[in-house]
Amino acid sequence: MEFDLKRIDEIIDACGCEAKNLITVLQNVQAELRYLPNEVMEHIAKRMDISVAKVFSVATFYENFSLNAKGEYVIKICDGTACHVRKSIPILTKVRELLELSEEKPTTDDMMFTVETVSCLGACGLAPVLTVNDKVFPAMTPEKAEQLIQDIKEGKIEC
């Protein structure tokens, strides 16, 4: 795949070339491409004068960076303590089952959905919650989650 490296350079220039801006650069690049392709990381390393291994090292340390392309809708199921004690796992199981996904295979083949867990969204008062592309859905149940996915598929909900 070809990437618009000029656009990547613009992002780097906007953030500043110093090594301290690496995380911000990666965040902004990911916001654009939805993931961090190897070629792009290599380019960033060269432009910012950081070793490629370091860029890879930082990118793999943080949960939010993805080395693989994610689906159009990223569903994050909160499994923080509050959500966990209010039964978040059955929701996760249901959602994965519906989309035929697993921990190892988080993204559907049609690149529509990615399912992840997140340790806490800080919306504990509404537990259990999930988010779709950062939109929070409170007090979920497996049934509600099923409906939600159906609604997204049918275009009834915008996220």
Binding site: E42, S51, V52, A53, K54, V55, F56, S57, T60, F61
Partner: peptide, 18 residues
């Protein structure tokens, strides 16, 4: 910096980039 840590926690490993 040819070798660096990659991933974290119990998945952490030392390796070259990618």
């Amino acid at each position: 910096g040819i070798l660096d840590f990659a991933y974290r926690g119990s998945k952490m490993r030392v390796m070259p980039a990618f």
